[in-house]
Simulated scan of single mutants.
Amino acid sequence: MTYVIAQPCVDLKDKACVDECPVDCIYEGARKLYINPDECVDCGACEPVCPVEAIYFEDDLPDGWTDFRRADTEFFADLGAPGGAAGVGPADRDHPVVAELPVPASS
């Protein structure tokens, strides 16, 4: 089991969760942050600091956001578990579940 970052994070990426994560398992995509399920230790430190309540234990994801479990897992298909996001840096891509979401109009 692991934690998942869902839709409220898309196009926000507050990163309070990144600062709180003791194992550096939260990676940055182009539009969303992703939790590496192979590196997450299920401590839950990230969940309470998320200002938009985007982080859920995978079994507690709301019905409309279950695809984000797959997105967080498949995002790492080619990356694997590099042992921490700090050494990888931001990715210029997102999982299709995220990439296909409409981009909000700028104000």
Rank of each mutant, 00 (worst) to 15 (best):
D67A: 15
D94P: 12
R93F: 15
F76K: 05
E28M: 13
D42L: 13
F68T: 10
A86D: 14
G44W: 05
E53I: 09
P96S: 08
E47C: 01
C43F: 01
D24W: 06
L12S: 11
S107L: 07
L61Y: 05
I5R: 03
P102V: 07
V88G: 09
C46Q: 06
P22E: 02
D67L: 14
A6C: 15
A6H: 02
R93S: 13
C43W: 07
D59L: 07
V4E: 10
E28W: 01
V4T: 09
R69K: 15
L101C: 05
D24A: 03
D78Y: 12
C17V: 02
V10L: 12
V10F: 06
R70C: 06
A30H: 11
D63L: 13
P22A: 04
C46R: 00
V103F: 05
P48G: 06
P37G: 09
A30W: 00
V103W: 04
E28N: 06
C25D: 09
A54P: 03
M1Q: 14
A85G: 12
D67V: 05
V41I: 14
A45D: 14
L33M: 13
K13N: 11
P51L: 13
D60G: 09
D78C: 03
C25Q: 05
D72R: 04
A77V: 12
L101T: 01
A85P: 03
D19H: 10
A91I: 04
V52W: 10
A71G: 06
H95Y: 07
Y56F: 15
F68E: 01
Q7K: 14
D67M: 14
K32Q: 08
D67Y: 08
G44L: 04
G44V: 04
R69Q: 13
E28T: 14
V10W: 03
V88I: 14
D63S: 13
P82Y: 11
A85S: 15
G80P: 06
E100R: 12
D67C: 01
D60T: 02
A6R: 10
C40A: 12
I35L: 13
G83Q: 04
V18Y: 02
V41R: 12
I35P: 06
C46F: 03
D19M: 11
A71L: 05
P104V: 01
D67H: 11
A6N: 14
C21Q: 05
V4G: 10
F75H: 06
A30Q: 15
Y56I: 10
E39R: 09
E53P: 03
P48I: 08
P104F: 04
F68A: 10
A81V: 08
L33T: 00
M1H: 14
D38V: 05
K13Q: 15
D60V: 06
E100M: 12
E58S: 06
E74T: 00
T2E: 04
E74L: 02
P22Y: 03
G89A: 05
E39C: 03
D72A: 00
I55G: 02
D11G: 00
V97E: 07
F68D: 08
Y56G: 12
V18M: 09
P104S: 03
G29R: 01
A71I: 09
C25F: 04
D11Q: 13
V4R: 10
L33W: 02
D11F: 14
D59C: 00
K32G: 01
D92S: 10
V49M: 03
C9N: 13
V10N: 08
N36S: 05
P62H: 10
C50K: 00
A54K: 01
G64D: 15
G89Q: 05
